[in-house]
Design a protein around this nucleic acid. Structure first.
Lengths: 365, 365
DNA sequence: TTGTATGCGTTATCAT
DNA sequence: ATGATAACGCATACAA
């Protein structure tokens, strides 16, 4: 039987200081510093000698000393949708604010700019404010895809580093993307709903939107949902129907009521946080339709607890904001590298584990 | 319509320094320091004046400066079970090692002590080594309950602060507990299994153990599992059977095969990471029994992918270790407070979302 | 090309 | 009871 007993950390010697390295190399600490920061004006010979030592002792600067002397304040701008209380974007924003609190003492400041996700001109207006601020970094939620792409191009020209959260833009030049795999999220929803309805029956997919824009996340979730059944062998026992509801129509609630109560519906999938609107209808009609949706907002949690919504699939939106901020901390302050893509787990939330997702925000990379 | 646009951070003035506060109070910075650290030898009058100013400006020390001057190395000992590669405790240990890496530059060092969880004398031996090290803090996994309780009493006497992970000890005097709600975990397992078997049939609960000890976590999970059906209205459509398998018996695999293949079994719940042993049997017998268990270890992930295990309930064990370490960082270095209890979410892992749980470790509070 | 001096904010020690 | 000062490790401006 093999037992492990790691002790790599304790075995390491204490961190070397520049002073000690200077002594080892028989030079002054100014010279060592010039090598470390590649400021030149060092003879090739001594440079090599110092580099060798640095490598050998695995020199890592004392972050306290560096933080103290730099005494720098980094400003990060977050450009995310506005929201009313209880709506989805409140959660990522909370994560950003929580990160701001934690990282303030490390020299990271945050300014949030909210735009109306139904008005491209609002995005443009706020994005110009962001640029005027000349931040050290930007966190971008590209929910208005077309304008967001233009914005990223501008940022690349201005050489302002940025991270993307929520939904990705390919080849945007972003430092990293933090978000979800929407396609797989749809597949997961399909699996859960199938299990709930016992493997056969009619399923409705209902998209509820507030504008005409093409919503990538919604589409990918639906795609994944559909594909799950296409790949399944029980394809003939399940039939899918799709409905679109536009909240701008004055009678949208009535329309929603109609599509939700289509006869012989065993299950409904709403690929967004707006699933609670359908839950209201189902509760009101008092029918037993299994319901799966996305995002743990208060309204959805309410119906989850009541058993009207059966499953919610979540993407740790609070962590998205926090991690985006932490990424800048690691890059700007700690001068570390970070991974280019961070896909957060697709959490399955149900009545039974709901309680432990409410304050699940945890720091870590 | 109300839109939010938080900007609390940017509005705050730059952090005050002790020097500036001294100037405001017309004293030297030595006096201010004495007040801050309650070292006395300050006249009540000036003390009050300084305290008022400190409060007014919401003084927060510069952590870089403090870290630099303290230049202290804290040693944390982790006392956790030993493991063979791929076993459950490898994961919490990995989380601890990851935290050690991240926090090393902040002056936190970690030494891990592994004990054999089937041998109380091994725990005693390792716990004595821990005490001999005189660490600044201890992370304890009290899987051998009786001995662990005695150990915590000793720690309280010695005034060595400690945190508890995995399963709790009530009134132990620990700084905090980081773990799971085992009872609720069992309930969740019941819900999932019930949904999978379509709400009726025979279910077996199989406990696989390696010793005679009373295992609190296992018991609570089973309790929760049972209670779910007791509280359910369909109680008469489901029947529960319970089996115990002791791995010390030479023929335990054969026994496991027998209980797993009990006729008319629609579902099996294994309240531990050892569910893969049952999965092997089910796969071998080539029967369609729905299977739910705990913990995302490699062997279980394997059977999840194959569809032999239907659901795994996980408790972010990697984060448990990381958070425990982070707690000490916050207490010892940042001198912050922490919450006394941190229950991690009960994650539901299935074939469809498995991929995103593999590297889900994230820093944060 | 190299070495030296100063200061960042806090803590702790020493005089007064 | 209070004030002055050295030190932590690093970055940088300046002197040699």
């Amino acid at each position: 039987m093999i037992f492990f007993n790691f002790e790599p950390i304790l075995n390491r010697t204490l961190q070397m200081t520049i002073k000690e390295i200077a002594r080892l190399a028989n030079v002054s600490l100014g010279t060592v510093d010039r090598v470390i920061h590649k400021r030149g004006k060092v003879s090739p010979k001594t440079e090599k000698k110092i580099l060798d030592i640095l490598k050998y002792v695995d020199y890592r600067p004392n972050i306290y000393a560096r933080g103290l002397v730099l005494n720098k304040l980094f400003t990060i701008a977050a450009l995310i949708p506005s929201f009313e209380m209880g709506e989805y974007w409140e959660i990522p924003q909370n994560g950003i604010m929580k990160g701001a609190q934690d990282l303030e003492q490390f020299g990271i400041r945050v300014k949030v700019f909210n735009f109306n996700q139904n008005l491209p001109e609002s995005f443009i207006e706020q994005s110009e404010k962001v640029i005027a601020l000349k931040p050290d970094g930007i966190i971008l939620a590209p929910v208005i895809n077309f304008e967001a792409v233009r914005f990223t191009k501008k940022l690349n020209k201005l050489k302002i580093p940025f991270t993307i959260i929520d939904s990705n833009i390919s080849d945007s030049g972003a430092l990293c993307f933090i978000g979800q795999d929407a396609y797989q999220s749809g597949k997961l929803a399909a699996k859960l709903l199938k299990s709930e309805i016992g493997g056969k029956g009619n399923i409705s997919i209902i998209s509820i939107k507030n504008n005409e824009n093409h919503n990538k996340t919604l589409q990918k979730r639906i795609e994944g949902f559909r594909d799950y059944f296409l790949e399944s062998d029980e394809i003939d026992q399940i039939s899918l129907r799709e409905f679109d509801i536009n909240q701008r129509a004055t009678d949208w609630k009535e329309l929603l009521r109609q599509v939700s109560s289509t006869p012989d519906t065993a299950g409904i999938f709403v690929p967004s946080s707006k699933v609670h609107f359908v839950a209201e209808v189902i509760e009101d009609l008092n029918v037993t339709i299994k319901l799966v949706g996305n995002d743990l907002i208060e309204r959805n949690a309410h119906f989850l607890e009541k058993g009207v919504i059966n499953y919610l699939i979540c993407q740790r939106p609070e962590n998205q904001g926090y991690i985006a901020l932490d990424a800048f901390y690691r890059i700007l302050v700690l001068k570390q590298g970070i991974q280019k893509e961070k896909y957060l787990p697709l959490d399955i939330v149900t009545k039974e584990n709901l309680g432990y997702y409410n304050d699940a925000l945890i720091r870590l990379a």
